[in-house]
């Protein structure tokens, strides 16, 4: 890879000291986001995907957490940056939207005021110009009668409309990167389809890269270009979306695929992953997935596997099993049962 990616995350760790011990929410996470691409970060609750997303914006309070490693956005280091430097990055270069648009919008300010504020904090413009820009953005995300909706309060909108307003607010300064943290989880499936379509359309139009954090592999398959699969604070696999679904190289990804009931076909029994995710305070010394893995052997318990190429240069996985063995297991045991 010749040129520097838009966002470069290397060995990122976010730890929270608690009375029970150090919670390693994110532990040695590395990935790149290239300009204009949609990267899916998929994982179950507690996998650290949302914590990582917030870390990209430097949103974790320094007093309550310890963030180490490297997050480099367009050449600028985020981890350890001064508050003022982070502030100028937030909203103008990197924007974020969240799972629950109702609680994420201030209940006592109008939608329009919240949008204008986001624009004016990074652009020296008059109130009138900011208002015009906000109305333009509301129209762009498909809010009917945008000029009138400008004065509406969040509770007067439906869930889908609120998320549209959040997207409008996030993109109002034309950021290079949008972090969408479970943006459709709180929405109905027909509205989810609209919102995903909107995010996809706008990322094309604005040329923004998107980090789409989700628990839903279906959302990943239909929206993303590349995927990072997270488990217990670590990345277990990352690949091009086609590679991930056609040749997954991590037993955890196999387990996820085996767990999902399908809308497009009737499956027999599901093949769930046994047991439960480990405690983030007391992670296994070796591979974090080893206690639940059906293919674990000797070194898995003691030695932490590194993220290494599996099949192609762009396809990385964290697993001790030799690559040919994994390819064989996928082809003969896993894929036929799906």
């Amino acid at each position: 890879m010749a040129d520097e990616p838009l966002l470069r995350v290397r060995d990122l760790s976010v730890h929270f000291p608690t009375p029970d011990g150090l919670v390693r929410s994110v532990d040695g996470l590395s990935f790149d986001v290239r300009a204009g691409e949609i990267l899916g970060v998929v994982g179950e609750s507690g996998s650290g995907k949302s914590v990582a997303g917030k870390a990209i914006l430097g949103l974790h309070e320094p007093g309550q957490s310890v963030t180490t490693g490297e997050i480099r956005y367009a050449g600028r280091q985020v981890v350890g940056a001064a508050e003022e430097e982070l502030r100028q990055l937030r909203g103008s270069e990197i924007a974020m939207i969240f799972q629950d648009p109702l609680s994420s919008l201030h209940p006592y300010f109008t939608i329009g005021d919240q949008l204008s504020e986001a624009y004016r904090v990074h652009n020296r413009v008059s109130r009138k110009a900011a208002r015009a820009r906000a109305v333009e953005m509301l129209t762009l995300v498909g809010i009917p009668a945008a000029a009138r909706s400008y004065g509406a309060y969040p509770h007067e909108f439906s869930g889908g409309m609120r998320q549209r307003a959040m997207i409008a607010m996030a993109l109002i300064c034309d950021p290079g990167l949008l972090i969408a943290d479970e943006p459709t989880t709180a929405l109905d499936v027909t509205v989810q389809a609209q919102i995903l379509q909107l995010i996809w359309d706008l990322s094309q139009e604005f040329g923004s890269a998107v980090v789409l954090i989700t628990h839903d592999l279906g959302v990943v398959a239909e929206t993303c270009d590349r995927v990072v699969v997270m488990y217990a604070g670590r990345c277990l696999e990352q690949a091009d979306v086609v590679d991930l679904f056609e040749r997954p190289m991590s037993p955890y990804t196999w387990g996820l695929l085996g767990s999902i009931p399908r809308i497009d076909e009737t499956r027999g029994d599901l093949a769930p992953i046994a047991g439960q995710p480990p405690s983030l305070i007391d992670l296994p010394p070796g591979c974090s997935f080893e206690p639940r893995c059906g293919f674990a052997f000797g070194s898995c318990t003691s030695e932490r596997p590194e993220l290494s190429a599996a099949g192609s240069e762009d396809h990385l996985a964290r697993c001790h099993l030799p690559v040919p063995d994994r390819q064989e297991i996928w082809r003969t045991q896993i894929a036929p049962a799906l």
């Binding site: 937030r90 909203g91 969240f98 609680s103 994420s104 201030h106 209940p107 986001a118 607010m169």
Partner: peptide, 10 residues
């Protein structure tokens, strides 16, 4: 959450 949003806006 809306405070997180406010911070994320810069």
């Amino acid at each position: 959450d809306f405070i997180t949003t406010a911070k994320a806006k810069g």
